[in-house]
């Protein structure tokens, strides 16, 4: 299905421009053209389709739905909704507060917020297109599990005592069962869905196109200029320390899933073990300082530090786990 993009790149690089496949530069250029053309096509088609389907799903409905749910199921649902509900990262604080004041337990809200940057439709598409469905399923399962377990853990240690006082008060009020307003929205017509999908496609495109270029550019550089076998020889054995190291390297790097997935592809092709790659990429996407600075408005330091530690531990464990399961 994706062969056409490989052919396009080969034709441009080797036939039109006349480079030889042995040159590092040509390999990098080939990778760059193949991946950018593939990614942009996938994005345009799929974001529209997904937008059309999920036009009626929004954070307010999810909140109303989660508010009445059984606690244990809540974590799983929270994490699952986190992966499919669209919202801009600049809305994460209002979303956090909206959930909290509806009386939803902190752990379930956090399951939602942890999963949200890790999994989204763009990430899933890119993974499936670049690394195949098996890896994609694995990635989704791991992402949701981290959300669920992270949420469970935060509730188990009573992390809500570390919320900022006004948030804690709102949570208490919500759990006391004071009525929160429920949104009544009417079903959407096909026309409205089309409008939403169209707008969604253009907004996401504007937001991610530069990440695609940066991500694929880095991936291409790795591909063409890091000597063959270097990564494999130095890090290919899945040495235990390489996983925490990858997580640490990922923290100051801040990117969204769109930018990091092409790099992921390149790392895996170059022989970096799958666990190390996952650890690095999840850390880049989900553990970022700008996000934590924002969260400071609603959480006190102990909670922020705990959350950070939970994430880093989770990514490290994921890395080790997948490095030691050799069949993947």
């Amino acid at each position: 299905m994706f062969q056409v993009f490989t052919d396009l790149a080969s034709w441009l690089v080797y036939d039109v421009l006349g480079f030889s496949p042995e040159q590092g530069f040509a390999a990098a250029l080939h990778f760059f053209i193949e991946d950018t053309s593939k990614i942009f096509c996938l994005l345009a088609v799929m974001i529209y389709v997904i937008g059309f389907i999920r036009a009626s799903l929004d954070v307010e409905r999810v909140r109303d739905y989660l508010a009445g749910k059984n606690r244990f199921l809540g974590y799983v649902l929270g994490a699952s909704f986190g992966s499919i509900t669209p919202f801009c990262s600049c809305s994460s604080i209002p979303v956090f507060l909206g959930f909290t004041s509806a009386g939803i337990p902190l752990g379930i809200t956090m399951a939602f917020l942890i999963t949200s940057p890790l999994i989204n439709e763009v990430a899933v598409l890119l993974l499936a297109g670049l690394l195949g469905w098996k890896f994609t399923t694995l990635y989704i399962t791991v992402g949701i599990s981290i959300g669920v377990l992270g949420g469970l853990f935060l509730d188990a240690i009573g992390a809500q005592r570390w919320l900022q006082p006004f948030v804690a008060k709102a949570l208490e009020k919500g759990q006391a069962g004071l009525p929160t307003e429920v949104n009544q929205s009417s079903p959407l017509s096909a026309r409205q869905r089309h409008q939403f999908a169209k707008q969604e496609t253009s907004v996401i495109f504007q937001r991610v196109w530069k990440w695609v270029f940066i991500g694929v550019g880095l991936g291409a550089a790795l591909h063409g200029f890091v000597p063959d076998g270097w990564i494999e020889n130095h890090l290919g054995g899945g040495q235990w320390w390489s996983v925490p190291a990858a997580v640490l390297v990922g923290i100051p790097l801040y990117s969204n899933a769109t930018g990091v997935i092409p790099v992921m592809e390149s790392l895996i092709v170059n022989g970096l073990p799958i666990g190390t790659t996952l650890a690095f990429c999840m850390s880049t996407v989900a553990a970022s300082f700008p996000e934590f600075v924002l969260l400071k408005q609603v959480m006190r330091w102990p909670l922020l530090v705990t959350l950070f530690a939970v994430l880093l531990t989770a990514f490290t464990l994921v890395g080790w786990l997948f490095n030691f399961i050799p069949t993947l």
């Binding site: 909140r63 600049c90 909206g98 307003e181």
Partner: peptide, 13 residues
């Protein structure tokens, strides 16, 4: 301020 935004019941900015 998040607190003030919350007072309007708004979750999406």
């Amino acid at each position: 301020q998040p607190q003030d935004i919350m007072a309007y019941g708004v979750m999406k900015t």
